[in-house]
């Protein structure tokens, strides 16, 4: 992807930060969705967990450590959530 800023052309990328509740944290939303999936008629529904995905546009040369810092300090709360990054 290309974006023009002034005379400069910057390459940008989209990254996805996937945030999920830790297994030890109660996820009542997931439990409620599991019940609804059974009512829908889906067979064999096990545990359901609901997280979120954050899509961020960033310059291509953004340091990996900076993305992790954002994921750790703002986009997820390490007390209750785990995250992974997809490029």
């Amino acid at each position: 992807m290309f974006e023009s800023i002034g005379n400069e052309t910057l390459r940008t990328m989209k990254i996805l930060v996937n945030v999920m509740p830790k297994p030890s944290v109660l996820d009542p939303q997931g439990a409620a969705a599991a019940e609804a999936l059974k009512h829908l008629g889906l067979a064999g529904v096990g545990r359901v967990r609901i997280g979120k995905v954050v899509e961020i546009e960033l310059p291509d040369n953004t340091e990996e450590s900076e993305i992790h810092r954002a994921a750790r300090e703002l986009l997820s709360n390490p007390v209750i959530e785990d995250y992974s990054i997809t490029k």
């Binding site: 509740p21 944290v25 109660l26 009542p28 939303q29 409620a32 709360n77 007390v79 209750i80």
Partner: peptide, 17 residues
């Protein structure tokens, strides 16, 4: 205060939703 790190732990969705 929990999000700011001034207090330990976190507050999540009520068990009963």
């Amino acid at each position: 205060l929990c999000e700011s790190g001034l207090l330990p732990g976190a507050l999540v969705r009520n068990k009963g939703l």
